[in-house]
Every structure is written in C-alpha cells, then in structure tokens.
C-alpha cells in the first residue's frame, strides 16, 4: 500500500463510486492498467460493492441485442491502435491514442500521483509534471528524478518550425528564476542532464517553449509556451 500515493487511491475510490467525469475516468483507467496494486484494490472494492448492482430489478433482454452488438462491431472501422491491444505492465509510455481523450483541463488535478501508475524502470521520479497547452491539452510529461536528471516525453504531435528548437525549463524558486533543463532535439523523448539545481518540489513549475535554434539566447524562456504544468510530488 505504501507505494501508492494517497491521491491516486482516493481517485480510484471515486472512480469505483462513479464520481469521476468521463475524462478523469479514462485517465484513471489507464493508470490502473499499469499499476497491478491499484488494479487489485479497485477490483476488490468493485467486488465488494457488486451486491448493490445485483439489487436492481432484472429486465428481459431483447434477443435482437446481440445482433445489434455484432452490427456495431462490424460497422466500426478498425482503429490504428485497437482498444484491446494489451500494454505490458511495465510499459512506461502511455499509448498516444489515449491523450486526445484526456484533453480537458480537468486532468490537471489528476496529475497528482500520476507517475505512480507508470512503473518507470530505473529510479523513481521525485516529481512528475503534465504540461498542458493554453487549451488544457496535454503536450508533454516531465519526470524529474531529483539528481539533476529528468526525462521528457511528448504526448501530442508538436511541429517544430525549421530554425527553431524546443527547450525545457523549470522554476525551482522565484529567486533562482526559470532555469533551462536542456535544449531538445525535436519533439522526441529525451533524457535531460542539467546543472546543479535544488531538489524539485511539489507545485514546481515546468514548461517547454519554442526558442531560436540551439536554445534561448538570453538563458531565460523567450518563445511561445508549448506546454506548462505544476509538478506533483511522487511517493
């Protein structure tokens, strides 16, 4: 139990009770898929509450229903990444198809405890930040390991114009100001190794901006923000 963040457990409880929005439910389902411990807890609570579902009065089902289901399945064009495709429990990368479904800004609150479900191999991140664009759509996820290394992954299609670079930043404190975590080679997953910074804390700001090729000329973010978000403390 100790490995689960309390926030995540509470969200999972709310999910079983049916209190999450569709967007939140989709996100927590994805997390549950990658977290056997959380999945077991959710399964247990579901089974415990199941008798309440069985207290509804049964209704006769039309024999046509199965044909309607088959017709619906036949009509559906196969998606490029079908819902049924299994993801290994230790797959650190959330499937891309999942992100459009969680575009609403309400995922910000859910970012609490988000990383606990990923089971990233190697060191556990100290904080995880989901970076959202102005419309609240997730663009990237930064995991900061607290030893001056971090990992960035992009979860949206980001086009970097010729002659420009993406740059990752954090704001450890107002005194230190925005500090570069590294200039990125396109919108691809990257491991960042940066200068000595204080250990990251919850609610620390992370962002990715579009900068001139090779990075900001001033050492501070100058370009448009691709995504920004506050860190959620893990563990």
């Amino acid at each position: 139990m100790t490995t689960l963040s309390n926030d995540l457990t509470l969200l999972a409880d709310d999910h079983v009770l049916g209190l999450l929005s569709e967007t939140e439910a989709t996100l927590i389902e994805e997390i549950i898929q990658r977290d056997p411990e959380l999945a077991a807890r959710v399964g247990r609570l579901r089974d415990q509450l199941l008798p309440l579902d069985l207290s509804a009065v049964p209704q006769p089902v039309s024999p046509d229903l199965i044909d309607a289901v088959r017709a619906q399945l036949a009509a559906a064009t196969p998606a490029p990444a079908p819902l049924s495709s299994p993801h290994p429990a230790n797959d650190p990368h959330p499937p891309r198809r999942f992100w459009p479904a969680v575009a609403a800004a309400s995922v910000v609150g859910l970012a609490l405890g988000f990383g606990a479900g990923w089971q990233t191999p190697g060191p556990d991140p100290v904080v995880v930040a989901v970076l959202l664009d102005d419309a609240g759509n997730p663009q990237a996820v930064i995991e900061d390991y607290g030893n001056d290394t971090a990992q960035v992954r992009f979860v949206a299609d980001i086009t970097v114009p010729d002659g420009q670079s993406l740059q990752a930043w954090t704001l450890p404190s107002p005194e230190i100001g925005a500090t570069s975590l590294g200039v990125l080679d396109g919108a691809r997953p990257a491991f960042l190794d940066f200068d000595d910074l204080p250990n990251p804390s919850g609610q620390q700001l992370y962002e990715v901006t579009l900068e001139p090729l090779g990075g900001s000329p001033t050492g501070r973010p100058t370009g448009p923000i691709i995504g920004k978000g506050f860190a959620a403390l893990q563990g």
Partner: peptide
Amino acid sequence: LQDAMVQIWRKAQQFSDTSGSARGW
C-alpha cells in the same frame, strides 16, 4: 448495454483475474 457489450469485446484482453472478478469487471 449495447455500447457496453462492444466495449467488453474490445477490452476483454485487458481483463486480469488478479484484479477482481470477471463479473465485477
């Protein structure tokens, strides 16, 4: 129920009986 049956079909591979019963799922 019809929509749910379609989802059950598509998600069936994700079911694991280490996380609760098939019925609860």
